[in-house]
């Protein structure tokens, strides 16, 4: 069981003067139950990677397989295989009520009204928008954070085996970002989750695995903690490391012997305090 990309290459406007290489040979595999964070500078190929994995874009070469089945064309999205949450997905809410919007996906998968309603109710619960309170409201009366969550519910309701999200927290305030982070982290119980973002700090703490993309190539693929312990990998991929890790790198450069690096402020402060004791 996995979502697998093998030897994937893609060039936009291939054969013209505007040809732009987006993916230059990518081999990756995503498993159910894991939360994978994909990081890369703007233009590194992150969004192309997601579109290929969802079957929305057929790459120039290479193959995509879901649980052993070859993906060929956009049908993968309608089948329960892969769910895709686009950037600013709330722009696509369209129905008269939140519940009808979330029900739209399962209905189009051929489920009955009852089954679709049941799916919508569960999906709304999963994103913390109780169907009682929110189901009959117009999507246009929701706050920015609530609308984003309703849009994610619309994808969860189709019960995808793999859930792909492109910048799910961009443009949201503190509260909205935290709610979406929790929903995404919890979703790994029901699907393999792949999150693309340019803000490393948003998901680095909760991800099981991190992939760094640079100019269409994978430059790092490993456990999140391995990346935390070697933050110089960020710069290698043309990315700025999170300030938390930069602070600890600078402390090391200044001569402090930190036992390890941490994303947790309390733990990092403790390790720095200990290193200062040791230096005395």
């Amino acid at each position: 069981m996995s979502l697998t990309l093998a030897g994937v290459r893609h060039t936009y406007a291939a054969g013209t003067a505007f040809a732009t290489d987006a993916l230059a040979g990518v081999d990756l595999s995503f498993e159910p139950g894991e939360l994978v964070l994909v990081l890369g500078a703007t233009g590194s190929g992150k969004s192309t990677l997601l579109r290929v994995a969802a079957g929305l874009l057929t790459p120039l070469s290479g193959s995509v397989e879901i649980d052993g089945r070859s993906v060929d064309g956009p049908l993968a999205v309608v089948e329960p295989g892969v769910g895709f949450v686009f950037q600013s997905p709330e722009m696509q809410l369209f129905a008269e009520t939140v519940e009808a919007d979330v029900r739209f996906g399962p209905l189009n998968q051929g489920l009955t009204e009852d089954e679709a309603h049941h799916r919508a109710t569960r999906a709304l619960e999963a994103v913390g928008l109780g169907a009682e309170e929110f189901g009959s409201r117009s999507p246009f009366t929701l706050s920015g954070g609530e609308a984003r969550r309703a849009a994610i519910a619309g994808v969860l309701a189709m019960d995808p085996g793999y859930l792909l999200l492109d910048e799910p927290t961009a443009g949201l305030d503190v509260e909205g970002r935290e709610a979406v982070r929790e929903i995404v982290a919890r979703s790994r119980r029901r699907a393999g989750v792949v999150v693309v973002t340019h803000d490393a700090e948003e998901f680095l703490g909760s991800a099981d695995r991190v992939i760094l993309l640079c100019a269409g190539r994978v430059t790092f693929d490993g456990p999140a903690d391995e990346l935390v312990q070697s933050p110089e990998r960020f710069a290698e991929a043309g990315l700025k490391a999170p300030e938390m890790l930069l602070a600890q790198m600078l402390a090391r450069d200044a001569g402090l012997k930190l036992a390890r690096l941490s994303l947790d402020p309390a733990e990092a402060a403790l390790l720095i305090a200990r290193a200062r004791e040791g230096a005395r």
Partner: peptide, 12 residues
């Protein structure tokens, strides 16, 4: 996070 690190260090 780096602001919370500063806070923790102040507490220490």
């Amino acid at each position: 996070p780096v602001g919370r690190l500063a806070e923790e260090l102040r507490a220490a």
